[in-house]
Simulated scan of single mutants.
Amino acid sequence: MSTAETQNLHPDLQQGHSSDISASHSAVVLWLYLCCAMILVMAVIGAITRLTESGLSIMEWAPLSGAIPPLSQTEWERLFSLYKTIPEYQQINRGMELEEFKSIFWWEYFHRLWGRLIGLVFAVPLAVFWIRQQLPGWIKPHLLFLLALGGLQGAIGWYMVASGFADRTDVSQYRLTLHLMMAVGIYCYIFWLALKLGANSTTGASSNALGSWSAILVAAILLTMTSGAFVAGLNAGLIYNTFPLMEGQMIPPSYSDGSPWFINSFENIAAVQFHHRVLATATGLLAIGLGLLVLLKGRSRKVRIAGVLVALASVGQVKLGIMTLLLVVPVGLAAAHQAGALIFLTTALYLLFQLKYSR
């Protein structure tokens, strides 16, 4: 690469992007993609944990000792007795046997264990790459910040779970949304860093209409995912199980029952589901339109492929959402719908990157 070409690189991409240096970073790129894959799996495990009403089964936050599961009958009895003190048991699961408690315990335990594993898979290779000087200077502060965000996410997870111990039979939809969207934000952050580090044939960031629309699509997906988190937190998918109308009406009659009016978007089940439907439909149409436009006007093969992927992902995700609703939220489909949202977001981020940084 000539000096002139190097100077034209985006500042974050200048260091370490000759072909030789880029090859030495391939292990780092693969590590970042592995972390993304593990977060995606974590989202699916979290969805199953929520859908099986397992999230309140562990009443203690022990970041280190909590990695060891119950090893004796006495310990199982102690944990079960703690669970019996909360409203979820007293109002919903009263009379549950120990074996039934174990079935929900293991989902929450695996959810927390997978979170610990993500932390190890991120922190240990980070230290190794750092010591071996395999990390370009520009990425180091980003990775340290991500390490701190991972610790914060664990604390937010406990903050969410604790909301279900006293006055309600489930966790707060506000805290659940915060926990999910924090995970999504970390996922996006890592994925974008992996794209930048792996892009050994890039020019400076460019501004164009397609790139702007792609950024709007990413924002729309994030907004739709946020609304979906409120749907999950309120179990809003268990009502109005028809599509496109909501029991024969475009807007449900109880849409504006909440007071003050703005609270409907966060606490009125009918309004929350309606908003998610509208946002999901609009986002899907935007993705299909943008994908077709990119296919026609994309300046490179990578860009056109990215456009096709976005359109296909949007169609698949909308279909999953409708099926999940019509079948009254079966666990498998609902978990696939959450995974589909992250996959859809991934294709949109990839398209945005290709439009802004590829030749």
Rank of each mutant, 00 (worst) to 15 (best):
H17G: 04
Q317S: 08
M38T: 04
S163H: 06
G211H: 09
M42H: 02
I92M: 10
V171C: 06
M42W: 03
F122T: 04
S254A: 14
V28G: 02
N93H: 15
S57F: 14
P87L: 12
Y350D: 05
G46Q: 00
T6K: 15
S172L: 12
I156W: 01
L98H: 09
N264P: 10
Q14K: 11
A67G: 12
A205M: 15
L325H: 04
G66R: 03
A62G: 03
S26Q: 04
E99H: 07
S57L: 12
T74F: 00
T242L: 04
A313T: 06
A348V: 05
M323Y: 06
A205K: 13
Q7L: 10
W138E: 11
N235T: 00
S65E: 09
L345Q: 03
R175Y: 11
L325N: 07
G321D: 11
Q73N: 09
D257E: 12
V41L: 15
Y189S: 14
T49A: 14
R50H: 09
G204Q: 08
E100N: 09
S26I: 01
L152G: 11
G119K: 12
E53V: 08
T52W: 14
H179N: 14
V328E: 10
E88G: 10
L178N: 03
V318H: 02
P260D: 08
L113S: 00
Y109E: 09
P70S: 00
I216N: 01
L117A: 13
W61A: 02
A311I: 00
S207C: 08
A27N: 13
I131V: 15
A306K: 03
Q133Y: 06
R112T: 12
T177K: 01
G157T: 05
F145S: 09
G55Q: 14
P330T: 14
L30A: 07
E100Y: 06
L245V: 12
L195E: 13
E97M: 06
C188T: 04
T346R: 05
G46F: 02
L333P: 05
L146M: 10
V328F: 07
V218Y: 03
I86S: 05
G55I: 06
P136L: 02
I239T: 11
G321S: 08
I239W: 05
N200K: 14
L327P: 01
Q273S: 11
F165Q: 09
N264F: 02
M160Q: 14
W76H: 06
L82E: 15
L152R: 06
L342S: 05
I156H: 01
S65V: 08
L147R: 02
V41P: 00
S206W: 01
L290H: 09
L351W: 14
I68T: 03
Y174L: 01
W31D: 01
M246T: 03
T224Q: 11
G248F: 06
L296F: 13
F105D: 11
A311Q: 09
G185N: 12
S22V: 13
G291H: 06
T224C: 08
P63K: 11
T202Y: 07
Q173I: 04
